[in-house]
Design a protein around this nucleic acid. Structure first.
Length: 477
DNA sequence: TGAAATGTTGGGGCG
DNA sequence: ACGCCCCAACATTTC
């Protein structure tokens, strides 16, 4: 080595934070100089599964990270191109000894990293999940394909009790002579975006949710299903890009469980912890069974004869199905890039089991619009709803969109917010406005078929059609 | 982390 | 007083 300083690259992928970052910590512990690098990978930026809102969130997140780095006297090095080629060039330019990165277990990332590992000194650390794939296995060494036993074993593995609050010293620095690209300005974060990216925002959100006086996490179990009054943490986009670590979230949840004032509160917090474990479960599933990315986990359901009607799909995408509890969240998704988890289940059930459209269509649409869109969680969620996945809802579990609306948006506030043409429809009919007689429609200023669509399908008919389609497929194997 | 169909029970009205 | 019917209310089964 010609340089006296020992230099490492910190390759940032989905870990946009300085706090509790195992890749960064490892680099700082072993090297004198650490160069933070982000590579704009055309294969990812132009994928049909990438959405503009998520990209905007990522780019603004990078700007926030750069700001933090500047406070520590460093630049964020940005390059564009095939990661292997860019890394080769940078290692050469900076005489770096090693590249540290947080392991990513999605199929694309695994293949990308495997190729790089053959040619470059890449060291992968944990961080995307608390317990990585391979660490939660059955006694015979097979991965779990049912959630409950998985979660029991997950909880038995000693979880970290502390996060790494290491404040990066001025060792992080990028040599001035190294060329860097600007962070793209487009797509830009819209002014009415629901989420502001960045580690600071994410840390504050986690803190407020789990450790503030009110401890909203303790109400999560009871409140999480109401689609309007929001009992959820809204942390998914931050977890998606590592603006908080999974470990931080888990530690905070465990602390909340321990500090909960009573039994109900503890249960509420445990429910949220379980959602974190669901997230890890699906990371493991996609890692162990990469074929689920394009196929049903249960191969018999590959035989389903989908209706796949394009017009129906378009109506679903646009929030024009005529079912308020479906249309409202679908419109919210397009506008804000986010949807309540209960609503995700409702609209997914409607697409797959009412419209009899292949779950992959919906999976793709979600990826194109969700700020938090993650290949593992999204795929897992869709296959769960479709009944084709691991530990999935049985195929005959078909949501009734009217009952779901009444249960989880009882006063119709959520529906009225996103489907303004229903604003004056009385509570009694808000989830089934087509049941209004002519006079009621006039009084509500909402003529069905003119101001708001007639339901594009009859639920009772759809239910029977789907039961038959799944039954036939099931018997084919 | 369903819903609908079907079965069972028990109170009240009524002849 | 009694049997009968009706029908909530709840439980069980089936898709």
């Amino acid at each position: 080595m010609t340089n006296a300083k020992r230099t490492a690259v910190w390759w940032i992928r989905r870990d946009l934070r300085l706090i509790d970052n195992q890749a960064l910590s490892a680099a700082l512990a072993t090297h004198d100089q650490v160069i933070p690098l982000f590579i704009l990978d055309p294969a990812l930026l132009t994928s049909p599964y990438v959405g503009q809102k998520r990209l905007a969130f990522l780019f603004e997140g990078l700007r926030q990270l750069e700001k933090e780095l500047r406070e520590h006297g460093s630049r964020l090095l940005v390059r564009k191109g095939k990661p292997l080629e860019q890394l080769q060039a940078i290692v050469e330019e900076t005489l770096s000894e090693v590249i540290y990165a947080e392991a990513d277990y999605s199929p694309y990332a695994c293949q990308r990293d495997a190729e790089i590992l053959e040619l470059l000194p890449l060291k992968l650390t944990e961080g995307v999940v608390v317990h990585p794939p391979g660490s939660v296995l059955k006694d015979d060494g097979d991965p779990y394909i049912v959630y409950t036993p998985f979660s029991k074993v997950w909880k038995k593995i000693p979880s970290p009790s502390k996060v790494d609050l290491f404040i990066p010293p001025d060792k992080i620095s990028t040599p001035d002579n190294i060329k860097s690209l600007p962070i793209p300005k487009e797509p830009a974060l819209s002014a009415e975006a629901l989420f502001f990216p960045g580690s600071k925002e994410a840390q504050a959100r986690l803190e407020a949710f789990t450790a503030s006086k009110e401890m909203p996490i303790c109400q999560y179990g009871k409140g999480r299903n109401f689609v309007d009054a929001d009992g959820t943490s809204k942390l998914s986009p931050s977890l998606r890009f590592g603006m908080v670590s999974a470990r931080q979230a888990a530690v905070s949840a465990l602390e909340a469980v321990a500090n909960a004032p009573d039994k109900d509160a503890r249960k509420g917090a445990e429910t949220w912890l379980n959602e974190l474990i669901w997230r890890e479960f699906y990371v493991h599933i996609l890692y162990h069974f990469p074929r689920v990315r394009s196929q049903s986990f249960r191969s018999d359901y590959e035989h389903i004869r989908w209706a796949n009607n394009e017009e129906d799909f378009e109506a679903w995408c646009e929030g024009q199905t005529g079912y308020p509890i479906v249309d409202a969240p679908m419109r919210q998704l397009r506008q804000q890039g986010w949807m309540h988890n209960r609503a995700r289940m409702i609209v997914a059930s409607f697409l797959v089991k009412d419209l009899l459209i292949d779950w992959r269509w919906g999976e793709k649409w979600f990826m194109q619009h969700l700020v938090d869109g993650d290949p593992a969680a999204n795929n897992g969620g869709w296959q769960w709803t479709a009944g084709t996945g691991t530990d999935a809802a049985p195929y005959f579990r078909i949501f009734n969109p009217i009952l779901q609306g009444k249960k989880f948006d009882p006063d119709g506030r959520f529906v009225r917010r996103w489907v303004p043409e229903l604003a004056d429809v009385p509570d009694k009919h808000i989830h089934a406005p087509w049941e209004m007689d002519e006079a009621a429609q006039k009084a509500a200023g909402c003529i069905i078929g003119r101001d708001y669509p007639t339901p594009i399908i009859d639920h009772a008919f759809a239910r029977e059609r789907t039961l038959e389609a799944f039954n036939i497929a099931k018997d084919k194997d």
